[in-house]
Amino acid sequence: MKRKFLAAPYVVWMLLFTLVPLFIVIYFAFTDSITGAFTLNNLVSITDYATIFLRSIWLSVAATLICLIIGYPVAYTIAQCKPKTQRILHMLIMLPMCMSFLLRTLAWVALLEDTGIINNIITSLGITPLPLIRNSGAVILGMVYNYLPYMILPLYTSISKQNPRLIEAAEDLGCNKVNVFRKVILPLSLPGITSGITMVFVPAVSTFYISQKLGSPGTILVGDVIESQFKGAYNPNLGAAMSLILMILIFICIGITNHFTKNTDEEVMMS
C-alpha cells in the first residue's frame, strides 16, 4: 500500500506556503523598490543598520544565557518532583506562553515605570526610585520573561528522560554530587540545552514590540526596523533584505551552537 502519498497534500502545502515565500523574500531583497530591476542596494544599505543588528544579537545572547542559567535549576527541580506534581508544574510553565504577550509586556511597563508598582514599593520604604525602564536591562528582562518557558520545557524534557540508574552508578563508582552533575546529568541534558538556546534565541533576536514598550529609541531592534519597513516607512524590498540577513544570522548562530554540543550529542545517542 502506498501510504507515503498520504503526505502529498501536506508536502504541496508546505512547498507553496513556506518554500515559495522564502524565494520571494530573496527575490524582493535583490530588486529595486520602484523599478523592480536587479540591485544589490538593499543589501548594501543594511550596513547602515549594523549597530542595530549587533545590538539585537548582544541583547538576545544575554537574554538566552540568563534563561539558561535560571531555567536549568527550575527544569531540574521540576524533574525531581512526583509525577503528578511534575504534570502540574509543567502546565504552569506552559500556561503563560498561551496568554497575550502584548498585555503581559504591558504589565511589565506598569511594574517598572518611574511611578510604577515596584518604584511605589521602594519609595514607600524610603529609598529613592530606580530607573528600571527605558534601558537595555528592561529589554533583556522583557525577553527573559517572554521566552523563559521555551528554555525550561526542552531542558525539563531532557532531564526527566534520564535514566536514574546512571546517576546511581556514578555515585557507586565514587562520584561526589558535583561530579555527578558535571559528568552525568549535564552532558545528558545537552540536547535540551541546545534546543532551549535555539528556542529562546530565535524569537528574542527577531522580536519587536518588547523594545518599543520597555526600551528607548536607543534600544531599537532588528524586528522593530523590519516591522516599520512593512507597516510604516513602506520599503518591503529593504525589509526583505533585512529578513534575509536575519535568517542567515540565525542559521549561523544555530550552526555555532550545534558545533559546540555536537560531540557530546553523539555520545548521548550511543548510550
Partner: peptide, 26 residues
Amino acid sequence: VMGLTNIPMTNPDIVTGVSLALMFAF
C-alpha cells in the same frame, strides 16, 4: 520532508509573517 516541516519551526515568526505577506502581495 522533515526538513520542510522544520522551516516554520526554526524560522522566526517575523520572517514567516513577512515572507507570506510578500507572497500574498505578489
